[in-house]
Design a protein around this nucleic acid. Sequence first.
DNA 1: ACCTGAACACCGTTCAAGT
DNA 2: ACCTGAACACCGTTCAAGT
Lengths: 194, 194
Amino acid sequence: MNRHPYHHGNLRAVLLAEAERTLRDQGIDQLSLRDLARHAGVSHAAPRRHFADRQALLDALAEAGYQRLDDQLHAAIDIAGDDHRTRLRAVAAAYIRFATHDAALLELMYAVKSGPHSAALDAASGRLLTTFDNEVREAQQAGTLLPGDPGRVRLLILAIVQGIAGLITTGSIDARLADELIADAAELFTHGPR
Amino acid sequence: MNRHPYHHGNLRAVLLAEAERTLRDQGIDQLSLRDLARHAGVSHAAPRRHFADRQALLDALAEAGYQRLDDQLHAAIDIAGDDHRTRLRAVAAAYIRFATHDAALLELMYAVKSGPHSAALDAASGRLLTTFDNEVREAQQAGTLLPGDPGRVRLLILAIVQGIAGLITTGSIDARLADELIADAAELFTHGPR
DNA sequence: ACCTGAACACCGTTCAAGT
DNA sequence: ACCTGAACACCGTTCAAGT
């Protein structure tokens, strides 16, 4: 609200928030440091104090994205309660919600992860993986999920959930059909096809 | 081989070939019209005759990508022979081979498909979908694939295949583990989990 | 019909200088 | 400690002019 709020140390946060909005609304191609600086009311060189280059900003966005996704999965798990079938579907639904609401961010998260990345990013994505792993392991122990190597089962579930999210993002299917596909997949992974 | 080969009508093809190479080796961010023109030995404005803007070049790359992927799937099917189990796994393997060899191109193909696109692109992606559909339908009729709405079964298979490809692209798994996951998925979709 | 060269408005990045 | 302003090397795009 001040005329000079950026001398008080919140420029970094303001830039990140605006970048996340632009990423969601206009895509990564439209994300420009100079544009962010203009929106924040600072010179085009000011962001340099907080992000060494454009990639550093993208890394920070990805790290925050992993953190937020993990938070949302945990929230979904907490609401779902004790039944493992319900929990698994809640996690899948929460992941797909994130993937469709922040498709460009999720893509960025994976792209950043496959290149060289910071320890902080690694920790954030590691937490997400642990969240997934725990659910799969517990569901298997409870007999809800089909048996087999937990690592492979987790990867298969991850693949199909991410695949369904991709179908929505590319406009191949709508949310209603996505729900049916999740139900089909859940059936397959918990009961078997017949 | 001539000093002036671009007055003979092959600049478009040369630009497309070089663009495909750059996309594969260096990613879409490094793909610049001016750079392509330099490599081809023409002025920076020359590509304009063949591609209205950068997006038009990307559209052309995507269309060629759909065509080539469809060709490779048909080749894999032809080699696989008559057994539907073998054919399905051959299609999945061919798709994943394309997805890992041309990850950036495949991403571009989906991105272009979700935005506004040309009739030619629609036709090319339509042919690919038909190839998939035929395999699923035939495998279902032969009793190889689990029954149910063919459209939903096709989408589920598409999701898991694309999901596995994504896991490879992001470096989460290697080719050996990918093969095991495909085998797991094939088991799931043809026999059921137990 | 196809290509060139100059021009314009945008980038990311760097760096001396300001407060 | 943080921000500014000028500068540099790159883009994509446009357009008059050349062959």
